[in-house]
Nucleic acid binder design. Structure first.
Length: 289
DNA sequence: CCCCAGTCCTGCGGGC
DNA sequence: TGCCCGCAGGACTGGG
């Protein structure tokens, strides 16, 4: 489930393609439904062939490959998509190949087991429209505590649900939302408009801490093993998860209560009923590792 | 505008 | 052992 740390790891893993020239592109359709590619392969190929890659960036949970004509290729992994420069987990789920010249890597791959991901090519105006501030909130690693509260603080939604809203804040997904709220000591069901200024500061601090720590460990590879970096290697942060997918385990913060699982907006949330209070006062300080 | 439920997709694991 | 169903949650859409 690539979220900000996983997508950032993908981005860093393919930085070596900066300076490369695109010599071709091919959709790979086997027995599975093709992933969404816009425009269609032939037009896509014609528009990118001959272009040079001038930058590899990230917007929220998407990798942005900037070309010399200012068009951008957006790689959007969604649930199971991977951006690779080396051996894929298997060849059946390879979805797209971009051929390169003038760099150590001869191909850039998009692999996706479930096929919910997509790849699309945008002109600068389309990019501003599709992924601009009207559609996407500030990056979770760029936003400051005041802006965070301004963007979410008036909402009546539960804090965990609001953190997943990419229009309000870009990059946080289901896994890291649980981790962040545990470190911040805030109950996932607490309404945004009842979160205090101090708590917003703690949430902000926890968010930065958790996301940076996860990037350091190259993201989280869950038990289904889907997420890998650009070299098809597992991440390491799953071993440091405090609550996610740890229902029934002893909370690593208080070491007295056990982790609970609840469902919010049809998605799993994990939290410690002792460390994460619904009030404004904190019961126990769960130290970030 | 705000918010939630439903949709897409494949693989896996639980229940019978 | 084998089959079926539910679940996993990215982003988007439709509707209350």
């Amino acid at each position: 489930m690539p979220e900000l740390p996983e997508v950032e790891t993908m981005r860093r893993g393919i930085l070596q393609v900066v300076g490369a020239r695109i010599t071709g592109l091919e959709s790979l359709v086997g027995t599975y439904k093709p992933i969404s590619i816009k425009p269609k392969t032939a037009v896509f190929r014609r528009r990118v062939t001959g272009q040079t890659i001038v930058d590899v960036g990230r917007v929220g949970k998407r990798v942005v490959v900037k070309l010399s004509n200012d068009d951008v290729i957006i790689l959007e992994p969604r649930m199971t998509g991977l951006v690779l420069v080396a051996d894929p987990p298997n060849v059946e789920h390879l979805r797209l190949r971009i051929d390169l010249a003038g760099c150590p890597v001869k191909q850039l791959w998009f692999w996706d087991r479930r096929g919910l991901g997509s790849v699309y090519l945008l002109r600068p105006k389309e990019f501003a429209l599709r992924l601009g501030p009207d559609r996407l909130g500030p990056d979770a690693l760029q936003v400051d505590p005041v802006a965070l509260q301004e963007r979410l603080g008036s909402s009546r939604r539960e804090i965990k649900v609001a953190l997943l809203d990419q229009r309000a804040l870009a990059g946080v997904g289901n896994l890291y939302a649980s981790e962040i709220l545990h470190v911040a000591g805030v109950h996932p069901r607490k309404r945004c408009d009842r979160v205090s200024r101090k708590q917003w500061q703690r949430i902000h601090q926890a968010m930065e801490g958790v996301l940076l720590e996860a990037i350091e460990h190259e993201g989280s590879t869950l038990s289904d093993g889907t997420y890998r970096n650009a070299l098809n290697q597992s991440g390491g942060y799953q071993n440091l998860h405090r609550v996610y997918d740890r229902e029934g385990d002893l909370c690593p913060g208080c070491e007295s209560a056990s982790i609970r699982r609840i469902v919010q907006c049809q998605r799993s949330t994990f939290y410690c009923p002792h460390c994460q209070t619904r009030g404004t006062r904190r019961k126990v300080v769960g130290k970030p590792r």
